[in-house]
Simulated assay, not measured.
Amino acid sequence: MQKSQNLFFIALLPPQEIQDYANQIKQYFADQYASRHAQKSPPHITLQPPFEWLDENVPALEACLQEFASRQKAVPITLSGYGAFVPRVIYINVVRNPELLALQAALMTHLQRELAIVDKVSQTRPFAPHMTVAFKDLTRQNFKAAWPEFQQRELYFEFTADKLTLLRHDGRRWNIKAEFSFLSS
């Protein structure tokens, strides 16, 4: 019998009102620039990029994340303006801070040590926290049209991230599988 593997990733999700705002931006990209791919996941800050995991081992993954999260303090998050990975990605800029960088590094180390989950790409470049609003199906031409419009656009939110979110791909889109609360302060 073939064992079923699925794609998962681990992220921080902003509060609902910020998700609603980011989803309006994603919808704008879908309407104005035919870029719909970012709509396949809730607005998020990726901490652990997508990885394959056996369905039967999900309880072990969830237990590992619960154990990790229970020892973490809530992290202050500031979203300020927009950024881009030229030539295909536009995102809401996440201001780097020591708490966020430490959380991400600790999670990667924990997953590698406990479950042998390793993202090769992340090991070769620094963590660049961001919240994608357009990518993959944003053409180079549409990127060139959209980026000047968003480059100077103002946006500012602050929130406290107090839980990790595990997302699972169902073949079409990413859905929340489980959430793990941080240590209450």
Rank of each mutant, 00 (worst) to 15 (best):
L13M: 15
L13H: 08
P14D: 03
P14E: 02
Q16H: 11
E17Y: 14
I18L: 10
Q19N: 11
Q24Y: 13
I25D: 00
K26L: 06
Y28A: 08
F29I: 00
S35P: 08
S35W: 07
K40T: 15
P42Y: 11
P42F: 09
H44Q: 10
L47W: 08
L54K: 14
D55K: 12
E56D: 11
C64L: 03
C64W: 08
C64A: 11
L65R: 03
L65P: 07
Q66V: 09
A69H: 06
S70V: 11
I77Q: 00
G83S: 04
F85M: 06
F85H: 04
V86D: 13
R88Y: 10
V89Y: 05
V95W: 00
R96I: 10
A102K: 10
L103G: 06
T109R: 10
H110A: 00
E114G: 05
E114L: 04
L115G: 01
V118K: 10
Q123P: 12
R125H: 15
H130K: 07
M131R: 05
D137Q: 06
Q141S: 13
Q141Y: 13
N142S: 02
N142M: 03
A146F: 06
Q152W: 10
L155K: 07
F157L: 00
A161I: 12
L164C: 07
L166I: 01
L167D: 05
I176R: 08
A178E: 07
F180G: 03
F182G: 03
L183Q: 12
S185F: 09
